[in-house]
Amino acid sequence: MGAVATAPRTEFSLRQRLAHVEQGLFVFGMTIALCVVGALTTDGFLSLNNLSSILQLSVTFGILGIAAAIVILGKGLDLSLAAVAIVTAQVTLELMRRDLSEGRAILLVVLFALVIGLVNGFVVAFVEVPALFTTLATGQLVLGGVLVLFLEENIYSLPEGSAIAVLTDGSILGVPRAVLVGALVFLLGWLFISYTSVGRLIRAMGDNFDTARAMGAPVRPLQVLTYVVAALLAAFAGYVMISTENSVETTGTAFDPLLFTAVTVAVIGGVSLSGGKGTLLGVLAGTLFVGVLNNLLVLHSFSTATQDIVRGALLLAAIALDAWLHPRDEETAKTDEL
């Protein structure tokens, strides 16, 4: 290397330093800060009951967050997850109301979720429609189509003695079963992303699609796979949801908060929308953060409108931070990394 006349830049900008911080740890820290705020401003935040209910309520969108993260890691995006989760729950209960056995109802609905995943994946990977539009459309289609063609009640309750209830019933060694189920899904997701070649290639594909394709990775099947896995996880999240809440509404109120949380949890946890970056540990941190936040909003008895504003602002802040830390513009990225 020739003589270097000017000293290379050794000072790092705030952005460069932040980009190297493990975002999961950062969000864990923020969650703890939020807990401190909660303990100081409300009675009963720190009660065992409340903390345990935060965890139980977080499981549904935690699973959705994992689903969203798997797709986003591969540089995709799935906005139909919340719709799939809700519809899964509704249709299963409707089928059971029509005297189908529970096992068959679940089997049918899971097959349906599989088809949604395949459709999403096919349209994104082979027809090359941007993921944002594809999944927004399929999500609306599923939600609306099921409501119009299929559902006959405004609210569905879980029948007595249903197998779905067992998912989150009671606790084992003092740990609520819902939390154990969530932990299991988290563990499986982590193994999938980190210890299967397919999971690793999904991340690589998110990092650089052209490189992955040129070196012989089956990129299109991989894309389809991410959407299928995500849709199946979303269906599972749907079952966890009715299991913890015992009922599901067919109006919009059940849908909106879920749509918000799935992507938010992933992005807050550091799964960058530019693909290939982020860890499931971050998603876990994001889940806890949103869980605590939701809880505090309720404890402070803010109106739903105020809650929406807070959540919306949070999502915007997280996405803006992501865009700042991981700029998508090639030229900026290059000059920064030199």
Binding site: R203, D207, N208, D210, T211, A212
Partner: peptide, 10 residues
């Protein structure tokens, strides 16, 4: 290589 040669964040 920058465009299609390697994975820059791996």
């Amino acid at each position: 290589r920058k465009v299609s040669g390697f994975f820059s964040h791996l």
